[in-house]
Design a protein around this nucleic acid. Structure first.
Length: 183
DNA sequence: GATAGGATTCACT
DNA sequence: GTGAATCCTATCA
C-alpha cells in the first residue's frame, strides 16, 4: 500500500494504528488525519531536491521522516513511494487508544477533551514521544515505533479537504480526514 | 559566515 | 481572530 503513492497511502493509512513501545508504557493512537506530500508539491520539503534534511523522504516506503517545525515542534511522516521517489504522508492527528495518561504527562498539561491531545502534527509527536531519534526508522519491522494495520468502521467516511498551515499550493486537496457518521 | 523562512501551537483580545 | 515564541535548514555573500 505504501509504495503505491502518497495519495493512496494517505487515504489508506487512515484507521491504521501508530504504536510506540515507550519506556514508560505502551502508547497507541488511531490515525484519523493525514496529508500527502509529493515531489511535484511546491510546499513539500523534497520539492527543491534532495538534501541532507529530507533524505529519508527519498528512502524506501515505510520509514519515518521526522523534522522540526518552527523551531519548537516536531512533525512525523510516513515515507511512501519507491526508493528515490521523494514522497511522504504527514500524520496530522490521532485518536488516542492506549497510554492516554502517559500522553497527558508527556504533554505536561491536563484537562481538555481527549481528542485535543493529538489533534495536530506537533501534538501527535509530543504525545507519542516521537523525537528525532526516530528519523529514518523502519515502521514496518516491529521496532519501538511501528505501524499496525487497521480499517475504518463502516460508519466512518473519508473526507478530502484543502490543506492548512502552509503558504504554497494551499488549496490542493491533499488532506484526508476521517469523519464519523454520527454527525 | 550571516540571514530568511517554515508541513505549528498557545495565550491573549 | 490575531500575534508571539523559537531553532534548524537552506540559500546567498
Amino acid at each position: 500500500l505504501l509504495e503505491s503513492g502518497a495519495l493512496a497511502a494517505a487515504e489508506g493509512l487512515l484507521g491504521c494504528v501508530l504504536v510506540h513501545e515507550a519506556p514508560d508504557g505502551r502508547l497507541a493512537g488511531r490515525i484519523v488525519e493525514t496529508e500527502a506530500y509529493t515531489e511535484d508539491d511546491p510546499a513539500s520539503h523534497c520539492f527543491p531536491g534532495r538534501t541532507e534534511r529530507n533524505r529519508a523522504m527519498f528512502g524506501p516506503a515505510g520509514h519515518a521522516y521526522v523534522y522540526v517545525s518552527y523551531g519548537m515542534h516536531r512533525c512525523m511522516n510516513v515515507v511512501t513511494g519507491r526508493e528515490g521517489r521523494g514522497e511522504a504522508v504527514l500524520i496530522r492527528a490521532l485518536d488516542p487508544l492506549e497510554g492516554v495518561e502517559a500522553m497527558i504527562a508527556r504533554r505536561g498539561w491536563q484537562g481538555r477533551a481527549a481528542r485535543d491531545l493529538c489533534n495536530g502534527p506537533g501534538k501527535v509527536c509530543q504525545a507519542m514521544g516521537i523525537g528525532l531519534e526516530f528519523y529514518g526508522m523502519d515502521l514496518l519491522t516491529g521496532g519501538a515505533l511501528r505501524l499496525e494495520a487497521g480499517r475504518l468502521r463502516t460508519d466512518e467516511t473519508v473526507l478530502v479537504t484543502p490543506r492548512i498551515g502552509i503558504s504554497k499550493a494551499v488549496d490542493w486537496p491533499r488532506r484526508f480526514v476521517v469523519r464519523k457518521g454520527e454527525s
